[in-house]
């Protein structure tokens, strides 16, 4: 399966989705002009991955900042991950960033997925 690898920019996060090496990560800042357009390839990739996923998947969110339009798309990403067996969400937040911790807690209340919270 193809690797989805997008370098981060000023207003978009770094994306690595690599089934072979078991790396699934969204990190950095997310405030694109068109969040739906930016996240579509990620949703498409997850859709394809869900047809034949690894036995277990640790999906890492290591976000420094995301805007409200991205938060809706992050929820869409999480919803897409819900259907995949063996899925665990690793939610990273900076140790003094209560808002990012709370954001992760809220997402965990909105989807049926195990969340592990980690600081960096």
């Amino acid at each position: 399966m193809d690797i989805l690898n997008l370098e981060s920019a000023e207003d978009t996060p770094k994306i690595i989705l690599d089934k072979g090496n078991g790396i699934f990560e969204i990190s950095g800042r997310s405030l694109p002009e068109d969040s739906a357009e930016f996240y579509q390839p990620i949703l498409d990739w997850i859709d394809a991955y869900s047809q034949d996923p690894n036995p277990s998947t640790d999906f890492v969110f290591k976000l420094e900042y995301f805007n409200t339009a991205s938060s809706k798309l992050i929820l869409d990403v999480l919803s897409a991950l819900e259907d995949i067996d063996g899925m665990t969400i690793q939610w990273y937040f900076h140790e003094d960033d209560e808002d990012m911790e709370e954001a992760g807690e809220e997402f965990s209340e909105l989807v049926e997925l195990p969340f592990e919270f980690k600081t960096y």
């Binding site: 409200t68 339009a69 809706k72």
Partner: peptide, 29 residues
């Protein structure tokens, strides 16, 4: 927090690219 959660669950991204969450988020943060 409840308002934010209820909007994010039901919202669709508008033609203009917004999620309808901006003001709520500004008040929260």
């Amino acid at each position: 927090k409840e308002l934010y959660k209820s909007i994010i669950k039901s919202t669709e991204i508008s033609d203009k690219g917004g999620a309808g969450l901006g003001f709520v988020d500004m008040a929260r943060k």
